[in-house]
């Protein structure tokens, strides 16, 4: 096998690529700092956060507080917004200079975009979209055992990268708990790593960015869905959705009745959705509807009719009136805020 550019014996420490929007760190980066700390403590290795961008002073100070022993900052005007070429060139320079043993990314659009290219440039292995990470301390060299799922989630595999360094992985957001801010005096140190980017090598240009626009229920991570049973009143569902950071969805009947906009319709002639969780209220559950929630991770169904077919397609079934369940549920969620 072709060797990686970094030899195993020279590689050291666990690194986390810190994704940010210029003012704060991504949730998944905080999650990786927490998991990275745990792995570092178990193996006696150091934990490093890699912060890339332009004019990062305040963010670098902020990043120090989440458990990393060191924050390495790489700055350049060409790193002001993410572009594959500029970021990959810069990241490769830092990695070749500092020689990480393990290098973790969030499996976000940009994290996957960068990691996939960087791994090939470094001629090393990359385990993608991991759902768990472990350090094998019985191995001679510090070895990462990364769990991934495939085949629509039906098969889980443990992947290792034995000889090539760094051992790279992208990790699915939300699988680890995020790091908590530490008190003063427990923070790591900050250092800088100079990078040189050739503008002529940057082959993409960002023309426009739009964040947080029109509703697209197919992308929602959580959905609160109403049907005939809401009897025209989506108010409670809207409150619940607000508390969960969820989008509102609807069955065809609710759209037909004009209770809610058509772009929220789920099912055969509406949208097929893929949320982590769908709370389906007062929907009977004809197949024309359920094909639209088939790919949800978890389905909660609330319906007063015990015979409603929706219960066949639900993980958690509540046979009760939604108007008697939702108010106490909303109170519970409000109290825990």
């Amino acid at each position: 096998m072709a060797a990686s550019l970094i030899r195993p014996e020279e590689a050291q420490r666990i690194w986390v690529w810190l994704e940010h929007d210029g003012t704060s760190l991504e949730g998944v980066s905080l999650e990786l700092l927490a998991k990275g700390r745990e792995l570092a403590d178990r193996s006696g290795e150091g934990l490093v956060g890699l912060l890339m961008g332009h004019e990062l002073d305040s963010l670098a100070d902020e990043a120090l507080g989440y458990g990393a022993d060191e924050i390495v900052v790489a700055e350049d005007p060409l790193l002001e917004v993410y572009t594959t070429d500029a970021w990959c060139d810069a990241a490769a320079q830092v990695v070749l200079e500092k020689k990480p043993n393990i290098l973790l990314f969030g499996a976000t659009p940009d994290g996957r975009d960068l990691a996939g290219r960087l791994a090939v440039r470094l001629r090393t292995g990359l385990t993608a979209d991991c759902t768990d990470l472990e350090i094998k301390t019985d191995e001679p060299a510090l070895m990462l055992a990364a769990e991934v799922t495939g085949f629509g989630g039906g098969v889980a595999a443990i992947i290792a990268c034995k000889e090539n360094r760094p051992q790279m992985a992208t990790v699915r957001p939300g699988v680890f708990r995020p790091a908590l801010r530490r008190s003063h005096g427990e923070e790591g140190v900050q250092s800088r790593c100079p990078v040189r980017i050739d503008p002529g090598r940057v082959r993409t240009r960002v023309l426009e960015r739009r964040i947080g626009e029109a509703v697209d229920i197919t992308k929602a991570e959580a959905l609160v869905v109403g049907g005939r049973g809401v009897k025209g009143d989506f108010g409670l569902l809207e409150t619940l959705a607000g508390l969960l950071g969820a989008e509102l969805g609807a069955s065809r009947v609710a759209v037909d009745e004009g209770w809610i906009e058509k772009d929220r319709m789920i099912g055969q002639t509406g949208s097929v959705t893929r949320p982590k969780v769908a709370i389906v209220c007062g929907v009977s559950g004809a197949m024309q509807f359920t094909v639209g929630i088939m790919e949800a991770d978890t389905v909660v169904a609330i319906n007063s009719d015990p015979e409603a077919p929706i219960f066949e397609s639900a993980d958690y079934c509540v046979v009760d009136d939604l108007f008697s369940i939702l108010p106490p549920l909303i109170r519970e969620l409000e109290n825990s805020r």
Partner: peptide, 8 residues
Amino acid sequence: CTASYDRR
């Protein structure tokens, strides 16, 4: 197909 898959 419909009788096979549609619960109703």
